[in-house]
Nucleic acid binder design. Structure first.
Length: 405
DNA sequence: CTTCCACTGGAAGATCTGGCCT
DNA sequence: AGGCCAGATCTTCCAGTGGAAG
């Protein structure tokens, strides 16, 4: 059989990009109240006075980032008709930035050309702030609003959140530029762990984004599906089921759209021209499994080694096992694969992390005097086959290097 | 109620990497 | 080159823990 023609159309999707995370929709259903609050909170900026700091909280996939993009676009458009205000928005996703220092360094780079970026380590802490303030002074604008998405990543190191909202007090003349912060977090406890001074300034205006319920999710799905799918392809039963599933579980629109995309993808591969609820059912475990797989792959080498040791114990029916037993198996694994081994304490930390993520199940035992207190570990709710596969590629690839020596 | 086991997990600091500045 | 800086990861040390046994 010869090659088929390349054909941009398929029977299912009109524009599958619409279902992706990067897509900003024109409408944000069921978020009218939040959008109104958001606009109100930005009023001081359009008036040309000192901005308020804004804090958005809500779980993942409930529209915080999308709302911010929409508001930002609207604001940028509206301010064109006024001479007295020229606000810049600087967006930074703090994913993987676990300290104020790194956030500040990344903010500096937001103002710089690609060939002029600074490195994110090596400077004394206050120099980073000095550099940041210099960039701000050089900026030709009346306001700058820093949007710090997933700001909870910085943990308890809240320096940046202390300094930024206060830099108009001493570092930067408000005549030059006003500075405001918009913090976005999906961790509800984050705000409470901040120093109270920081909390008060950052959360001047707090906007809460609740999870979507099934009905709201269906509205969102219908809207997106209109652009994403070829007309009449998406069966109503699929919409109902995706809405119910995502609504039940997380209230996350992102999750609903992931599901919808996967269902469509399955139908396309199957050569079908209707996406109905059976495809959604088929898609659900695949979407979930994919998430787990990605997370497993991202684990550091030491965690992979620990998993490998545990997997071996699992296969020889020696689980659940004490950390001591696992450690001994781990030492054997390291030797076998010619990797440097770490101390027991480190491996205990790894086990703890694995169990937090749910890859490992942990049960505390206490047999009192004579046998003491300890933990028993076994594989968590993960398919051992999948762990095998992943370890093969992550660890096994190193052993094949031997051939080249 | 006290003892005591066999770990657990917090704290502090060592070591290594990668980068800045003079 | 040498001093300094921050992050990441790991080591060392050890007080603390919880509950059955005594």
């Amino acid at each position: 059989m010869g090659l088929q023609q390349f054909d941009p159309t398929d029977g299912i999707f009109e524009d599958e990009e619409v279902l992706r995370d990067s897509h900003t929709p024109d409408e944000l259903p069921a978020r009218d109240e939040q959008l109104r609050e958001y606009q109100d909170a930005l009023k001081p900026v359009i008036k040309g006075s000192r901005p308020k700091n804004i804090f958005l909280v809500g779980q993942t996939g409930v529209g915080k980032t999308v709302a911010t993009q929409m508001i930002r676009n609207q604001f940028t458009e509206d301010q064109k008709q006024y001479d007295h205000v020229d606000a810049h928005f600087v967006y930074l996703n703090c994913n993987n930035l676990n300290s104020s220092y790194r956030v500040a360094a990344n903010l500096v780079n937001k103002f710089r050309e690609p060939d002029d970026k600074i490195n994110t380590t090596g400077y004394p802490a206050d120099e980073i702030y000095t550099k940041l303030y210099e960039e701000l002074r050089d900026l030709d604008a009346t306001h700058v609003m820093f949007i710090l998405d997933e700001i909870d990543n910085i943990g308890t190191d809240d320096n940046i959140l202390y300094n930024l909202p206060r830099c108009n007090d001493n570092k930067i003349d408000p005549e030059e530029i006003y500075v405001g912060v918009i913090g976005i977090s999906n961790d509800f406890t984050f705000r409470d762990n901040l120093r109270s001074k920081v909390k008060d300034t950052l959360c001047e205006e707090e906007i809460h984004f609740p999870p979507y319920d099934a009905g709201e999710l269906k509205t969102i799905i219908r809207e997106r599906a209109d652009d994403a799918f070829v007309d009449d392809v998406l069966d109503n039963s699929a919409i109902e089921l995706v809405g119910a599933m995502a609504g039940n579980e997380s209230g996350s629109a992102r999750r609903a759209l992931d599901l919808l995309y996967k269902a469509g993808d399955l139908a396309r591969r199957n050569g079908d021209d209707v996406v109905d609820e059976s495809y959604v059912r088929e898609a659900e475990p695949l979407v979930r499994k994919n998430k787990v797989r990605e997370e497993l792959e991202r684990l550091p080498t030491q965690s992979h080694l620990v998993l490998r040791a545990l997997l071996k114990l699992h296969e020889t029916d020696q689980t659940p096992a004490k950390s001591q037993t696992i450690y001994e198996e781990y030492l054997g694994t390291c030797e076998h694969l010619d990797k440097a081994s770490k101390t027991q304490r480190t491996i205990r930390d790894r086990l703890g992390q694995l169990s937090l993520k749910g890859f490992v199940a942990c049960e505390r035992r206490n047999e009192g005097k004579g046998s003491g207190r300890y933990h028993l570990y076994e594989l968590g709710d993960v398919d051992p086959e999948m762990i095998h596969e992943i370890l093969e590629t992550e660890l096994g690839s190193n052993t094949t290097l031997d051939e080249f020596n």
